[in-house]
Amino acid sequence: MSPTPSPDRRSARSRPDRRRTGRGSQARHNRPRQERGASAVGRRFEVEVGPVAHGGHFVARAESRVIFVRHALPGERVIVEITEGTDGDRFWRGDAVEVLEASPDRVTPPCRYAGPGLCGGCDFQHVALPAQRALKAAVVAEQLRRLAGLDVAVEVEAVPGDVDGLRWRTRQRYVPLPDGGRGMRKHRSHEVVEVDECLLEAPGAPSYDVRGHTFQVAAGGFWQVHPGAPEALVGAVLEALAPQPGESVLDLYAGVGLFTRFLADAVGPDGRVASVEGDPAASRLAAANCPEVTVSPGDVGEVLAGGPAGLGDEWDTVDLVVLDPPRVGAKRAVVEQVVARAPRAVAYVACDPAALARDVAIFAEHGYRLVSLRAFDLFPMTHHVECVCLLTRK
Results as ranks from 00 to 15, higher is better:
residue 119 C to R: 13
residue 375 A to Y: 13
residue 335 V to K: 06
residue 148 A to K: 09
residue 321 V to Q: 00
residue 380 P to S: 13
residue 101 E to T: 01
residue 326 P to E: 02
residue 181 G to H: 00
residue 127 V to K: 04
residue 65 R to F: 08
residue 235 G to T: 10
residue 229 A to M: 08
residue 90 R to L: 13
residue 220 G to D: 15
residue 266 A to M: 02
residue 383 H to K: 01
residue 41 V to D: 08
residue 37 G to Q: 14
residue 373 L to S: 11
residue 334 V to K: 02
residue 220 G to W: 12
residue 357 A to D: 15
residue 392 T to Y: 00
residue 12 A to M: 09
residue 364 A to G: 14
residue 277 E to W: 05
residue 249 V to W: 06
residue 277 E to G: 04
residue 28 R to I: 07
residue 54 H to K: 14
residue 18 R to Q: 14
residue 40 A to N: 12
residue 242 A to V: 04
residue 55 G to Q: 13
residue 368 Y to V: 03
residue 191 E to R: 15
residue 382 T to K: 02
residue 87 D to Y: 00
residue 286 A to Q: 10
residue 160 P to M: 07
residue 307 G to E: 11
residue 241 L to K: 07
residue 122 C to V: 02
residue 352 D to A: 12
residue 244 Q to I: 01
residue 321 V to F: 01
residue 186 K to I: 03
residue 125 Q to A: 09
residue 21 T to S: 14
residue 199 L to V: 13
residue 60 A to G: 08
residue 339 V to I: 04
residue 137 A to S: 13
residue 268 G to L: 00
residue 314 E to W: 02
residue 81 E to V: 03
residue 197 E to T: 12
residue 271 G to W: 10
residue 138 A to Y: 06
residue 394 K to N: 06
residue 338 V to K: 00
residue 286 A to E: 06
residue 101 E to V: 09
residue 43 R to N: 14
residue 109 P to I: 11
residue 374 R to S: 13
residue 121 G to R: 14
residue 300 V to N: 04
residue 64 S to I: 05
residue 378 L to W: 11
residue 37 G to Y: 10
residue 279 D to N: 15
residue 73 L to A: 11
residue 131 A to G: 02
residue 217 V to E: 08
residue 325 P to C: 11
residue 271 G to N: 11
residue 234 V to A: 03
residue 175 V to K: 05
residue 284 R to W: 03
residue 271 G to C: 01
residue 98 E to G: 03
residue 60 A to M: 07
residue 40 A to C: 15
residue 39 S to N: 14
residue 21 T to N: 11
residue 245 P to I: 04
residue 24 G to W: 15
residue 70 R to V: 05
residue 172 Q to L: 15
residue 155 E to L: 05
residue 391 L to F: 05
residue 374 R to P: 15
residue 369 R to T: 12
residue 19 R to F: 12
residue 232 A to L: 06
residue 79 I to W: 00
residue 177 L to V: 00
residue 167 R to S: 01
residue 337 Q to V: 00
residue 290 C to T: 14
residue 7 P to T: 09
residue 321 V to P: 11
residue 67 I to N: 03
residue 241 L to G: 06
residue 323 L to H: 09
residue 138 A to M: 11
residue 267 V to S: 01
residue 300 V to Q: 02
residue 31 R to A: 10
residue 386 E to T: 10
residue 210 V to Q: 10
residue 337 Q to N: 04
residue 243 P to F: 05
residue 68 F to P: 11
residue 122 C to R: 06
residue 192 V to H: 10
residue 270 D to E: 13
residue 239 E to Q: 07
residue 270 D to V: 09
residue 288 A to Q: 12
residue 51 P to E: 02
residue 378 L to P: 10
residue 211 R to H: 13
residue 246 G to N: 00
residue 109 P to D: 04
residue 214 T to E: 11
residue 146 R to Q: 15
residue 173 R to C: 00
residue 111 C to T: 02
residue 393 R to M: 01
residue 143 Q to W: 08
residue 387 C to Q: 09
residue 156 V to T: 11
residue 112 R to V: 15
residue 218 A to V: 04
residue 349 V to E: 12
residue 264 A to C: 06
residue 1 M to E: 09
residue 321 V to H: 06
residue 41 V to M: 05
residue 209 D to Y: 00
residue 15 R to A: 12
residue 288 A to E: 15
residue 343 P to G: 10
residue 341 R to A: 02
residue 273 V to I: 03
